[in-house]
Design a protein around this nucleic acid. Structure first.
Lengths: 337, 337
DNA sequence: CTGTTAGCGCGTTCAC
DNA sequence: GTGAACGCGCTAACAG
């Protein structure tokens, strides 16, 4: 049925065809295969088109070609400073190939993420899932329907780009050990987060190598508030240094510490992850680097390659990290140890 | 024609219909008007559908109904910390009404923005343009085709939601005047930015009221680097305080000042705008508040209202601001004035 | 080089 | 309560 009367309808190919005295096909070709038409014909059609404000209907084109010209990008939290640079880079990379990008915010929930993916599936050619909270099975199921690229999530068989924070975390442990710390705490992030699992494992391994005691304190959601909230738990462990899941959490921890009169780094050392705050905090935060923009670009680029049917097999891109030493780490207080 | 052989095709309504022994229409109704069907029929169909992974094709539905179920959100720079909370809020508001949202990054370029809008037009029901860099005419032209909501851009006749930073800026001027400053400088943002024009005007007006000298220094793009780069120009004016277009610029200025051994706030006062950094900087930044998340939610909500054809006329929502005094402002050095 | 035809997947009148 | 037929705007065969 028609779209109704009151609605403002865009001019269609037919409108252009009529006022140009040609058939729809000709108009169509003027836009998709100009080489097949007379140069003047093309010019005239494009002229008329723009004069009446005609723009090819993306949707109708998609339906008939199966090429949607859209991709989807799903993240757990747009407002988490880790993601905006990634989103931006991915967006611009997609744009270079004239793709439109849907943005989804899963709000750290797998249900929401699953819903979004289903909604996107029928109007995109492929998707990038960042730090997906879905189960491996769901991811595989979705990947069966559309090309899929994962970011910071390691599912064998699914193309993925991973920020290998293990290296940076190892450096952080070594750094703390060298400073003389004997007992550290890892403040974890979301349980379903691959990055969190990787970092936790790296902390455990590094601690063993350097013969450090390590406690784990859980901050479910990576945020300033979470970090601030778990400070009592952190202090209760008796550790002299903390490695946080991310910078946001670390920043919250610093505030919580300050609230309790514990000064950083004199009384307690803090290390973040992701380097999203730059040197903005005071003291400036020692943290593990990241390259979220490169990650976003790489993931989108990989996806576009897949769409170009250039087979990509079981791609597994890895970006490594390093420790950025600033001013929140120092030897433990002399009274301790 | 068909989408080809090699392509992975989603299950269609027809597939569900066949394995359920009913017609396509019935399947369609099961999803859109369950009330018209037998309760058991509906259940069985939905069951089968999800078992074979069928999801209604958004695109085909859009084509036949004219309701795309999509909206677009365009911002100048996703990575500018002002926007992520806005994007997030807008995204979630749209999601509450089951809308998918396209994200566009205009990269501070009107050409890019125009291109994006055209690409979006034929697959969305409406759009939100944030801090648009387009001319009034272009905006009006686009608004003719699709419901449009502006953020921080004031075009009469087009629904818009504005953060009225004038109030906060006035407070900032009063604050500086009270501290004893006689000469201040406004570090401007993008020329085509409504917010920038508004802030500049507010600075001018406030300065006149308080009998302050005011110089203008231009930082084309709002960023850390820009702020840092214009510090020589700022110092050259002989002013004792600066109001920056935004927090990013302010942060850059603080760094540039530190590079030259000018200490804040003892030697020089700095005020930001947007309060995106929280108290993360050191000294913590005195700034003008913003409510970017509310703005995002309000804009999207307004757009959805328009789509629900609840006429909205010439809406002009305003969110006011106030000065957040922290630690980058103090009396000017005694040696001066 | 250009016009004609069929059909992408779905929603929706109509009949049954 | 359910099935058949048409059309949304466009592209891709097929003629000419």
């Amino acid at each position: 049925m028609t779209t109704g009367k009151g609605r403002k309808d865009l001019p269609t190919m037919m409108d252009v065809a009529r006022t140009a005295g040609v058939s729809k096909s000709t108009v169509s070709r003027a836009f998709t295969q100009p080489g097949m038409l007379g140069a003047e014909t093309v010019a005239r059609i494009l002229e008329i088109a723009s004069s009446i404000g005609y723009v090819p209907n993306h949707t109708a084109r998609a339906l008939s070609t199966g090429r949607y010209g859209n991709v989807a990008l799903v993240v757990p939290d747009v407002a988490n400073p880790f993601f905006p640079p990634l989103i931006r880079a991915a967006q611009m990379e997609a744009d270079r190939s004239d793709f439109c990008v849907f943005l989804g915010n899963s709000d750290e929930s797998w249900r929401q993420e699953d819903k979004l993916v289903d909604r996107f599936l029928s109007q995109v050619e492929g998707l990038v899932l960042c730090a997906s909270r879905l189960t491996d099975e769901r991811i595989r199921a979705h990947a069966l329907k559309r090309p899929l690229v994962l970011v910071n999530r390691d599912v064998p068989g699914i193309p993925r780009v991973l920020i290998d924070s293990a290296i940076g975390v190892h450096e952080a442990i070594a750094h703390l050990a060298e400073l003389g710390h004997k007992h550290i705490v890892y403040v974890s992030g979301p349980a379903s987060s691959w990055s969190n699992q990787q970092r936790r494992a790296a902390v455990r391994l590094g601690a063993r190598q350097h013969r450090l005691d390590v406690s784990i304190v859980a901050a479910r959601v990576p945020s300033y508030e979470s970090g601030r909230a778990v400070v009592p738990d952190i202090l209760a462990t008796g550790a002299t240094a903390a490695i946080a899941f991310d910078d946001l959490t670390a920043q919250g921890i610093m505030t919580g510490l300050a609230d309790r009169g514990v000064s950083v780094p004199a009384d307690f050392s803090v290390v973040g992850c992701d380097d999203v705050l730059g040197a903005a905090t005071y003291p400036s935060l020692t943290t593990v680097s990241n390259r979220s923009d490169e990650t976003g670009r790489a993931a989108m680029s990989l996806l576009l390659d897949m769409l170009g049917s250039r087979a990509v097999g079981d791609a597994r891109v890895t970006l490594d990290t390093y420790l950025v030493v600033r001013n929140t780490t120092a030897p433990p207080p002399a009274t301790r140890s």
